[in-house]
Amino acid sequence: MISVRKLWKEYDGQVVLENLNLEVGDHEFVTVVGASGCGKTTFLRMLLGEEQPTRGEFLIDGQPLPDEPGPDRGIVFQRYSVFPHLTVLQNVLLGLEFERAPLLGRLFGARRAEAVEKAEAMLQAVGLYEARHKFPSALSGGMQQRLSIAQSIVKQPKILLLDEPFGALDPGISADMHRLILRLWDEHKMTIFMITHDLKDTRLLVFDKTRLDMQAPEAYGATITYDIPLHVTTPALLRELNEAKTRTERFADVVAVGG
């Protein structure tokens, strides 16, 4: 359960996010969209623990977010998130080795065999088993992203963050990847936040600036302007849509200054 209350994020007087309010339950799939520079990535970095909110609360299960990245929140970046010096199998093993070998970061003998079994099962699930002894540089972009996903999920994180994970892939592969993510989401019961440009059947958060001062563009930040349950396909959809609209309508009368 993630709750965000009256959250603001500023850098040196530049407001990036303002007055963010959000509740996300366990095992939700949340898609975040918005123009570039609207603070989606800042939001993600706060979830990771790389950035701290300037004001307001960011809680996971009622506890403030840790102030550094940790194994309960996995991440898949658009690129560079696999380790080029490790083979596919070693990349997936790494998370298990960190957990079970604090001093050497390496497992040996029976304990390694056990971890290898788990890692290989994970590679089967993402279709990379045949490529397990290759280095990432020998993989295509889509395979590298699948590896990065496998690497994160083997740690069983409560939350998985995807930062434009398919942004650099062509559309056909991107659709395959989307199906893979949905399947893994279903199997592993985690909460997913995905920053993307594709809209699929998920809960959708739109980030945008509701106020704009042409003389001082940095004075106002973005906030969540729409919170749309695209996955709801019953009459409840209309009701939810209307509610979301009412929630954001308070901004309708805010006229852009100078705009």
Partner: peptide, 22 residues
Amino acid sequence: PGEQIIKAQTLGANSWQLILRV
């Protein structure tokens, strides 16, 4: 890449393991 260092932390690495393995 900073992404690698963040990723390793989300895989549970402490500073020593990060230096040793990444």
